[in-house]
């Protein structure tokens, strides 16, 4: 059951991740909850996408499914040219390790490793040596040169999250997913982290997708997708915080 469907190279080069008619049900029978209801979306290379929506809209589920953390009930999810459904746990893990970067809400660093060790962890797990010039560039972008040998407990929340972003960037993934990356940060630290993600798109050519409920954070994106009741209901390009807030009010109101 390890079918891999290849998409034509021309399309693959533009699309970093794609969801086609994705359905996600939780539970079964009468109590089933439809978290995603035939969602189709394409995430383009070199673009910064924010997914927004009220609580329970399915925005986190969509991201988990796109990132290979959760399996879909129906539909197709592809990362680059690889279709995720039917991948073995081993292949899925390797895919996450080699082609996807993650930034979690609660930092999720290994407390016993230093900042630098945390940044290079996925590379080390894969048994590879880091690409030094790239790593240097990432570290410069993070602005953490003087904190590299500190443990997470010796870093502030913003610094920890910057380390987490560094970990996501270090392996030069095809796409980075952020799950409320600023959810636990104050506004100044939020700004710093979003700035770094923005620069990784602009300067390093990364593809970034985040889930957020903060319009200010969403305003750093190129494109904002709005979810409600498991469907994509709206989309905004070149957003400002105010514009995002307006749409959100409309959705919730």
């Amino acid at each position: 059951m390890t079918q891999v469907r290849t998409v034509s190279p021309a399309v693959a080069s533009i699309v970093a991740a794609r969801a086609t008619e994705v359905v996600k049900l939780y539970g079964s029978g009468d109590t089933a909850v439809r978290a995603l209801d035939h969602v189709s979306v394409e995430l383009v290379r070199g673009e910064f996408t924010a997914i927004m929506g009220p609580s329970g809209s399915g925005k986190s589920t969509l991201m988990h499914c796109l990132a290979g953390l959760d399996a879909v009930t129906a539909g197709i999810v592809e990362i680059g040219d690889v279709e995720l459904s039917g991948l073995s746990d081993k292949k899925m893990t390797a895919l996450r390790r080699d082609r996807i970067g993650f930034v979690f809400q609660s930092f999720n660093l290994v407390p016993t490793l230093t900042a630098l060790e945390n940044i290079t962890l996925p590379i080390a797990i894969a048994g590879r040596t880091p690409d030094q010039p790239w790593l240097d560039m990432v570290i410069t972008t993070l602005g953490l040169s003087d904190r590299l040998h500190h443990r997470p407990s010796e870093l502030s929340g913003g610094q920890q999250q910057r380390v987490a972003v560094g970990r996501a960037l270090a392996g030069q993934p095809e796409i980075i997913f952020g799950d409320e990356p600023t959810g636990n940060l104050d506004s100044r630290s939020s700004g710093e982290v979003m700035g770094i993600l923005r620069r990784s798109v602009d300067d390093l050519g990364q593809t970034v997708v985040i889930v957020t409920h903060d319009p200010k954070a969403a305003s750093y994106a190129d494109r904002v997708l709005f979810l409600a009741d498991g469907r994509i209901v709206d989309e905004l390009r070149a957003p400002t915080a105010d514009a995002v807030l307006d749409r959100m009010k409309k959705l919730e109101g």
């Binding site: 081993k90 893990t93 996450r96 390790r97 996807i100 993650f102 962890l121 996925p122 797990i125 894969a126």
Partner: peptide
């Protein structure tokens, strides 16, 4: 649990 979950998310194989 959370830490191991994170390691799995960033690509640590079960074997590892």
């Amino acid at each position: 649990r959370r830490e191991i979950g994170m390691l799995r998310a960033v690509g640590m194989q079960r074997k590892q």
